[in-house]
């Protein structure tokens, strides 16, 4: 059974179709990179996986649980799926420690002490234990994104979704975030990553999905994708972003 199964998913905003018959799987332990030009629907697709974006047609299963079933306990499902956003989305009115413990206490029912211990473990892992009493606004973008990853990890997720985690960062901060993600991938975390960082894809991805205008144009192994992409659109895209 795949960890994430996306089956014929289509989505419309009114009459405008943003996703068309998207189908793919993410196996346990796999790292999938989703790329494509802006507006191609990659962010929308990844948000359908934990039902942040509703969709009108098709099915999505996470660990065998149907996401689009009205009877599914979405908060419970989402708590098991870690998500990292483009703009970090740490809670600005809470300290770093409170950001890390909120979900653990409110959703998983852990005691504040236990949540704190766990949170600090992951904060230490991303190298930011010294920042634990600060507010998000006092950290750099790269640091905030690492805290966001620690926040997601402290919920003990079965898989992680990354929605353009480095797109809002200054160039010199991108690597500190990618390093954390590479570490996670090497530990065997199941990851679905929307990114333009082809270096990251090359290093750890099992498969690369290329999207254009709401459809999955190419779903290939890393070697195939970088070696000989079949679609012309993917070739053009690669030529453009690998140019420099």
């Amino acid at each position: 059974m795949p960890m994430i199964e996306i089956r014929d998913v289509s989505k419309w905003y009114g009459t405008f179709q943003v996703l068309t018959d998207c189908t793919t799987n993410v196996e346990k332990g796999e790292v999938i990179v989703v790329c494509g030009p802006s507006g191609s629907g990659k962010s929308t697709l990844i948000k359908t996986v934990n039902a942040l974006e509703p969709f009108q047609k098709g099915d999505i299963f996470v660990d065998g649980i149907k996401v689009n079933d009205p009877k599914t306990n979405l908060p419970k499902l989402r708590a098991r799926v870690g998500m990292v956003f483009q703009h970090f989305e740490l809670f600005p009115h809470l300290t770093i420690t409170q950001n890390l413990t909120l979900g653990q206490v409110k959703v998983l029912g852990r005691s504040p002490e236990e949540a704190r211990t766990r949170g600090m473990k992951y904060l230490d892992r991303v190298g930011l234990i010294s920042q634990k009493d600060k507010f998000p606004g006092q950290l750099s973008g790269g640091q905030q994104q690492r805290v966001a990853i620690a926040r997601a990890l402290s919920m003990d997720p079965i898989c992680m979704l990354f929605d353009e985690p480095t797109s809002a960062l200054d160039p010199e901060m991108i690597n500190e975030v990618l390093d954390v993600m590479v570490g996670l991938a090497k530990e065997g975390m199941t990851m679905m990553v929307v990114t333009h960082e082809m270096g990251f894809a090359n290093k750890v991805a099992n498969r690369v999905i290329f999207m254009d205008r709401g459809t999955i144009v190419e779903d290939a192994t890393k070697a195939d994708f970088f070696g000989k992409p079949r679609s012309e659109r993917a070739q053009q895209f690669l030529a453009k972003i690998l140019h420099h």
């Binding site: 942040l52 419970k76 098991r80 956003f85 740490l90 809670f91 909120l102 979900g103």
Partner: peptide, 13 residues
């Protein structure tokens, strides 16, 4: 921002 709501939901709140 809408992302704050997403972040809350994504944590399982």
């Amino acid at each position: 921002p809408r992302g704050q709501v997403w972040a809350g939901y994504a944590l399982g709140l």
